[in-house]
Design a protein around this nucleic acid. Structure first.
Lengths: 190, 190
DNA sequence: TTCGTACAATTTGAGCCCGAACGACTGGAC
DNA sequence: GTCCAGTCGTTCGGGCTCAAATTGTACGAA
């Protein structure tokens, strides 16, 4: 687990490093803690309820999305699960090989693929989701119901800010220039 | 970005799926939003300030840790950055190849490796960190300073809960049985 | 000295991650 | 009927991710 040395201590050192240039401390601490918490929660869930079935957090989320929303087109599942289409292809392959997920062609549009749970997948979610939710309760045990709601509220505000103004902001930062190429990624064939 | 369909809507569907079994809604929403926010923030930062230098979030965090704390042993850096030692080996290799990070043997203990920034690395952080912090402020723009502090406080409580009681909890859940093997991971040589 | 235990970083294998390139397909214009 | 612009899922390349196995170093006991 991260964080033997406190974030506040780190802030001071960072400030010293910059000598005079002001830092947005509260914002920095908030972002740092979002990431820390996300890692801690994921780690805990993977090593408790998910470990027995050897599923990753992502695989479980995908399964959850299909379980809750029923048979769905892959692009919607990727969107809901918060992963790219390319990643979903791989995760779906894994889940299919475990016998939990099924893929089917769309009856009228040949470009689409539909995902749905197998019977085994349904049975799995009925059994495992309650345990998963139980651990969600465990990790937030230090917070009251009200505090949980308030936490979720604050986080939603962050998500919304990025969703609504992120693209525009990135455009502005690049100042018209096209985004820098990525070292990784597929190369043109020629 | 994830979440066209609301989490509250998903809750109801999940509840219906379970028919009667109660769900900890607030806790579920809090955890879901922690993860969503973390992804959104990471995505935004990678595609704005980090894109130009083709660094990932993780690589930047590692750089930041070494910048702030100075030359450090790899195990401490991994701990601070919230990644495993194995992952750090790879990330450090990447940063070394970019000329931002340096590795050195410990003068008295041959088992240890020390990481420090190159001059280029120092220059990079002096230039990029302010921009990074600026985007941390952007993503939290919907929150006041007080709300930021309160958000960080709630998240810290989650991190603490997992750090302090997580191991014990996982033990209890497994009920004495050793943790299930992982499909991935290195195999015995024989 | 030689052994054994402890602890360090690295390697390994399976899998996740993104975004760009790609091929299959759609649906409207002509 | 034949373009053709748009959309879909998949492939691909470089990189991150973990935990277990491995290699190497340290250090005290026999």
């Amino acid at each position: 687990m991260p964080g033997h040395r406190s974030i506040t201590e780190a802030e001071k050192l960072a400030a010293a490093k910059l000598g005079g240039i002001p830092i947005r401390r509260e914002q920095m601490a908030a972002v740092a803690n979002i990431y820390r918490a996300a890692s801690a929660v994921r780690q805990h869930l993977e090593n408790s309820v998910l470990r027995g079935s050897d599923l990753t957090w992502t695989a479980f989320v995908v399964l959850w999305v299909v379980w809750v929303w029923g048979e769905s087109e892959t692009r919607h599942v990727a969107e809901e699960a918060g992963i790219s289409k390319g990643t979903l292809t791989g995760v779906a392959r894994t889940l299919e090989s475990r016998g939990l997920l099924r893929r089917a062609d769309h009856p009228s549009d040949g470009r689409l693929v539909l995902l749905s749970l197998t019977d085994e997948g349904e049975e799995f979610m009925r059994r495992v989701f309650p345990a998963f939710n139980e651990e969600e309760a465990f990790v937030t045990a230090g917070l009251s119901d009200t505090e949980c709601r308030s936490l979720a509220e604050g986080l939603r505000s962050v998500v919304l800010q990025v969703e609504e103004h992120g693209e525009e902001r990135r455009q502005a930062l690049l100042g018209g220039a096209e985004p820098a190429p990525r070292r990784s990624g597929r190369r043109p064939r020629a």
